[in-house]
Simulated assay, not measured.
Amino acid sequence: MYSVEELIFGCPVEALSNILGKKWVAVIIWTLQERQLRFGELQREVEGCTKKMLTQQLDLLVHHGIIINEKTSENNMVTSIYYLSGAGLALIPIMEKMIYWSNQNLICEK
C-alpha cells in the first residue's frame, strides 16, 4: 500500500501520479533540477503560483522526500534553501520521458 496525503493507493504508479498531478508540483521539480533556490527565488521562477500554494506543495514534496529544505542560520536570520533529493533527481528522466511521450502522442493547441 502507498500513502499520499492520507489517501491509500494499491499501485505505486497511481500514488506517484497523484503527487505529480498536483498543481505546480511538476513545475517546482523541473525548476529545481539544476540548482538550489531560496523560497523567494523559487516563487519568482514559478510564475503565477501563490505563496500559500507554493508552501503547501513544497511541504508535500519535502514530506515525500522529493525535495530537501535545508535551513541555515546566520546573524539571527534563518534561510531555507530548497533542492531535489536523490529521489527527486531520479524523477527528472521520468519527466523527460513523459514530455517526449506527450509531444509524440498528444495534440497541443497553441
Rank of each mutant, 00 (worst) to 15 (best):
Y2L: 13
H63K: 14
R35Y: 13
C11G: 05
I94T: 12
F9S: 11
W24I: 00
E14K: 14
T72D: 01
I19P: 13
L58H: 04
W24E: 09
W24F: 15
H64E: 03
I99W: 00
I19D: 09
G40W: 12
I107R: 09
G88H: 02
Q43F: 07
L20W: 02
N103P: 01
P93E: 03
N105K: 00
C49A: 12
E34V: 10
I92Q: 03
A87Y: 09
V46Q: 07
R35E: 14
I8W: 05
Y83F: 06
L7W: 01
V13P: 00
Q104M: 15
Q43Y: 05
G65S: 06
V78G: 02
N103C: 08
V46R: 08
S73W: 11
P12F: 00
K97L: 09
N75E: 11
K22R: 14
R38M: 12
Q57A: 04
V13Q: 06
I107N: 08
R35D: 10
V4C: 02
N18H: 13
I66E: 08
Q104P: 05
E96F: 00
G88E: 06
F9R: 07
A90Q: 04
S3D: 10
E74V: 09
G10L: 09
M1R: 08
G86D: 14
G10D: 10
Y82D: 10
I107K: 09
N76G: 04
R35C: 14
G48K: 05
Y2V: 13
E45M: 13
G48T: 09
E47L: 15
A26W: 12
L60R: 04
E70V: 13
I92G: 06
Y2K: 12
P12V: 05
Y83A: 07
V25C: 11
E14Y: 13
M98Y: 00
N18C: 14
Y2W: 14
V25I: 07
Q57E: 13
A87K: 07
Q33K: 15
Y2T: 08
E41Y: 10
D59M: 05
G10K: 13
L7V: 01
R38V: 07
V62Q: 06
I107Q: 06
I67H: 08
E109G: 09
K23G: 04
R44N: 12
V62S: 05
P12H: 01
A26R: 15
Q56F: 13
G86I: 03
I8G: 01
Q57H: 05
K22H: 01
S3W: 13
T31C: 09
S80A: 11
V46D: 03
G48C: 03
T50N: 12
G40D: 12
I19T: 03
R44G: 02
L54D: 01
N76A: 13
T55P: 00
C108F: 11
K110G: 10
E109C: 10
L106N: 00
V62C: 11
